[in-house]
Simulated assay, not measured.
Amino acid sequence: MKKTIEYIAFDADDTLWENELYFQEFEKEFCNLLSPYQMSSSISEDLFKVEMKNLHMYGYGLKSMMLSMIETICKVTEGEGNIGLVNKIIELGQELLQRPVTLLNGVKEVLSAFQGKYKLVLATKGDLFDQQRKIANSGLQEYFTHIEIMSDKKKADYKKLLGKLECSPEKFLMIGNSIKSDIIPVLELGGYAAHVPHHVTWAYEQYEGKVEYRNFIQLNHIEDITNYL
């Protein structure tokens, strides 16, 4: 693999910097706001169902979550919740949209080690404005020859990215924390993929199956990829 790879792509959220932890904290505050109406576990279930229903319209990201929270408020309160609940969700969401970016351990060291040896790509999905903000605030732009903010991360999306890069799958390595979004689609195309587990994972991104591809690499920490390249 070391002699084959030309492009190394990195996922952003929960691979390069912290993200899902903040989303889960936001959801916990949301459940607390609605606790007079319903149990927290039930509220979380309702929110997830609404998010899944809306995914094809809103896509991924914090703004999508906020809209689904407002819809869930209407559902849980049967339309009788006061406007203060909605205002609080907007306030908390806007605070999160402006939160500083916290890089994960080992990220800069890995990017520095590979810069100049490989063509580095940042391949993320989510809300365009929010992802652009986080990328700019991360201070990592200088490491990447190409940055792609994708609406989704399915096989067709990676095929389109490879076309832009003029890169064949066997010369491409994707590194990310989501088996579902970062790993399986790339392996299905014939590329290489390295999974870096994160301590929290959104329910939608959780994957229970076993990954059985010869081009799959399981890492404990992002720095471990240097043992393969």
Rank of each mutant, 00 (worst) to 15 (best):
V101S: 10
N87W: 07
I83S: 07
L173S: 03
V121K: 01
V110C: 02
I135D: 06
L103A: 07
P100V: 08
I179F: 14
P185E: 03
N105W: 10
K154T: 13
G176C: 11
E148A: 13
K134S: 08
L140K: 05
E91Q: 12
L96M: 15
K164Y: 08
Q115H: 13
D182N: 10
E80L: 08
A193T: 02
Y158E: 01
I183G: 00
G93F: 11
H146Q: 07
L189A: 07
Y158N: 00
E95L: 15
L96K: 15
G191N: 02
I89D: 01
E78R: 14
S181N: 15
N82W: 11
I90A: 06
L189H: 09
M174A: 08
E142W: 01
I147D: 04
H146D: 09
L189S: 10
A136T: 13
D127H: 14
E166L: 04
V107R: 08
L120D: 05
K119D: 08
L120G: 04
K119H: 13
K108C: 03
L96S: 10
N87E: 14
Y158M: 01
E78P: 00
L161V: 03
G191V: 01
M150A: 08
L92Q: 10
L187E: 00
A113K: 10
T145M: 08
L97N: 05
G84K: 14
E78I: 08
E166V: 04
D127L: 09
I149Y: 08
S151N: 14
A156S: 13
L104D: 07
K153N: 11
F129V: 14
I179T: 06
S151D: 10
L92F: 07
K164D: 07
N105R: 14
A113I: 04
D127S: 12
I89K: 02
L97T: 03
V121N: 01
L122V: 10
V101I: 15
L187A: 00
V121H: 01
G84T: 12
K119R: 14
G81N: 09
Q131K: 12
A193F: 03
G106W: 04
I175V: 15
Q94G: 05
K164V: 06
P185I: 04
L122D: 04
S151I: 12
K159R: 11
Q131M: 11
A193H: 04
G190E: 02
I183L: 04
M174C: 07
